[in-house]
């Protein structure tokens, strides 16, 4: 089975691109490939002009590719603030500093400022385990955002979030990303979300891009509707 085949996607700096497709169409495989979690059986992967085929996620992260996860990957026994501080320390290349404290300037104010943007400041000094699901999703993205990436990849940022909270989470996210001028690719199941937030949408089917363009026109095409929504 080919989960990703001859993909070539040009994304402008600062662009926000949504990816849709049925289950098994290769969306998550694509994310895993460009973030170094999976290696291709054949062919090369180029991210931002650099060959990243043999790089581990860690090395891609250092080159400015960050990702969030379908299931949030958080430091569950720490406070919300400490998680963000760790991302900042990693970005500053000080993950091995064993003498100076983590809680210090300039990281501390910067972490507060990030939590503020994500609307999480009221949770800053509380354990991650106390966050509601929407907050967990936001923190997951905030941890990646704090790495100051040039490319941010989000895997279903609103999955597991209740319908009422969905748009609130997305509103917050979009505002932050616009402000930071971060190129973003996100995979999304929810068509409403894609339609409302994506300026551009890619449709995946059996590992290929079958449509590319503005959400409204793309999602109106009958073959896209068949590919993405199946029987509907």
């Amino acid at each position: 089975m080919v989960a990703a085949d001859d993909l070539n996607i040009d994304v402008e700096n600062g662009e926000l691109v949504g990816i849709v497709g049925a289950n098994g169409s290769g969306k998550t495989t694509f994310l895993n490939l460009i973030t170094g979690y999976l290696k291709p059986e054949s062919g090369r992967i180029l991210v931002m002009g650099q060959d990243t085929t043999d790089l581990a996620p860690r090395e891609l992260a250092k080159r400015g590719v960050a990702r969030s996860f379908q299931i949030p990957q958080l430091y569950t026994n720490m406070t919300v603030l400490e998680g963000v501080l760790l991302s900042l320390a990693a970005t500053a290349g000080e993950s091995s500093n064993f003498w100076r404290p983590l809680h210090r300037d300039p990281w501390e104010p910067e972490a507060w400022e990030i939590l503020n943007r994500f609307g999480l400041e009221s949770y800053a000094n509380r354990p991650v385990s106390e966050l509601p699901e929407g907050g967990r999703k936001l923190l997951d993205i905030a941890l990646s955002f704090a790495l100051k990436p040039t490319l941010l990849v989000m895997d279903e940022p609103t999955s597991g979030v209740s319908i009422e909270d969905k748009f609130q989470v997305m509103d917050t996210l979009i505002a932050v990303l616009r402000e930071g001028d971060i190129t973003t690719i996100f995979v999304e199941h929810d068509m409403d979300v894609v339609q409302r937030y994506g300026k551009r949408v890619l449709v995946f089917d059996t590992g290929r891009v079958v449509a590319d363009g503005e959400p409204e026109s793309v999602l109106a095409q009958p073959e896209v509707r068949r590919a993405v929504l199946g029987h509907e």
């Binding site: 990957q73 958080l74 430091y75 569950t76 026994n77 720490m78 400490e82 501080l85 760790l86 320390a89 990693a90 000080e94 993950s95 091995s96 500093n97 064993f98 003498w99 100076r100 404290p101 983590l102």
Partner: peptide, 13 residues
């Protein structure tokens, strides 16, 4: 320090 926090983070994720 960051090193110590990353150690604890390892236990988490």
């Amino acid at each position: 320090s960051p090193a110590g926090y990353f150690l604890r983070a390892m236990y988490d994720n």
